[in-house]
Design a protein around this nucleic acid. Structure first.
Lengths: 245, 245
DNA sequence: CTCTGTGAATATATTCACAGCC
DNA sequence: GGCTGTGAATATATTCACAGAG
């Protein structure tokens, strides 16, 4: 591998960010939820201070985050709730509908399929898939369970864009491979394993075990007389893991 | 804070504790899982390159991460799998057992209770709680379901340290409050809401809706002809949210 | 020679603090 | 006066690239 020498002078570093920082993107859904519950109880305007509190972040961070989307607030007043809901929704791509398939209809798959805030915002579960013959044909959350063998066919017919993998770890990679081959470009993985995908496909991982272990780490610190690290805060979290082959 | 100086001669190499970075802590569970499956198939030694691939990260990042725990590798060779498993486990606090209570025994609670990799590593589900009378007394994953009313009593009797909240959002804050009052210091929240806790209590959040929205954001970018931002990688994720009152 | 461990360089994120508008 | 938006300062994280152990 030709180790490219670091150019000492050239470094355009790119002009302006057309992009919203990842850390910000990860918080937008939280702001959105807070805003929506405010809207529900008739709040029309909110200050960065109040919204930040509702979202569990600092107000400076909130303002900086929102500033990446544009100038949607009014100085001296705050943010108009409905307007901000719209702007964040648009930024997150929730003004269009995303077609989701859930693979694995065990307890977890069931819980996910029945999750309320799901269909409500831009996401529609259009397919449920399972390898268990006895589940095939039954209806869960109003969606008929199809056999895993029909995966490709279902993905194409239902125009699935996002796959939720809720299978055992052993099956996850194969299911993911088939999903990707069939055209899925985003995967949310609940199986406790790393999924290998081609470049261009995005995987995010949700993992109970990982989260518990992170909690355990901090519990241990606490017990080990680490003089209560000021506020016991947990900044980062679940890393989206993706391997390129 | 009298920073205790590391004894220079001690063998187990207490690796200087200016603290392990959060981003590193969040990845240790992934390394651990990869290492454990390697150990299972008899791998004795692994290079940073191979372990990094298995974990879906770059090898430089992996080495840097591990260097925060100490010098547990051998130059020119790699890492001894078993030894590294032990060191990471110890760092994460998995050498002791953590007693976990799950509140909410719906589909999700069931899925969590039945999750395998749970009891296997340092975590024991010692209590299940639900408000539904018809569930109380039944046994899930070998644990008897208790009534929510007995929460405080159960937490104390079972010495629960970590609470998993798998209730509807409406109930989550109240359940959390009671847990904290009863002595719980770590909470893993599956309910789609921000939990308010006192300083010193740690909350981590797992949220389907948030993850989907982040995926949608990137899907939208892709569709909007954003010239495939190099590798479509997803660096950060679910922020641990905590509000101080 | 191979592969770890790590400073130095870079990139990202958070926080501060205040100018500027309402 | 009150609040947003934002540069500048700081803190964290990632990546590079190579010295040095085995």
């Amino acid at each position: 591998m030709s180790a490219q020498r670091t150019t000492p002078l050239m470094r355009p570093a790119r002009p302006l960010r057309p992009g919203v920082p990842e850390a910000t993107v990860a918080r937008l859904p939280i702001y959105l939820r807070a805003l929506m519950s405010m809207a529900e109880v008739g709040v029309e305007t909110v200050s960065s201070e109040d919204l930040a509190t509702a979202a569990g972040v600092g107000s400076a961070k909130l303002r900086k985050d929102l500033s990446h989307l544009g100038s949607y607030g009014t100085r001296g007043v705050g943010y108009e709730v409905d307007y901000l809901v719209y702007q964040i929704s648009r930024e997150l791509g929730l003004t269009q509908d995303w077609r989701v398939a859930i693979v694995g209809v065990g307890n977890l798959g069931n819980a996910l399929a029945n999750y309320g805030g799901f269909a409500s915002r831009g996401f529609t579960v259009v397919a449920l898939l399972d390898a268990d013959e006895s589940l095939v044909g039954t209806s869960v959350a109003g969606v008929r369970v199809r056999h895993l063998a029909d995966l490709e066919q279902v993905v194409v017919a239902e125009q699935v864009t996002i796959a939720v993998v809720a299978t055992p770890a052993e099956a996850a990679q194969q299911v993911c491979d088939r999903m990707v081959t069939a055209g899925v470009t985003s995967v949310l993985n609940f199986a406790p394993c790393v999924l290998d995908v081609p470049v261009g496909v995005m995987v995010r991982k949700v993992d109970l075990s990982t989260e518990l272990q992170i909690l355990a780490f901090h519990e241990q610190r606490r017990l080990a007389g680490v003089v209560s690290p000021d506020p016991v805060l947990a900044p980062t979290a679940t890393e989206a893991v993706r391997r390129v082959r």
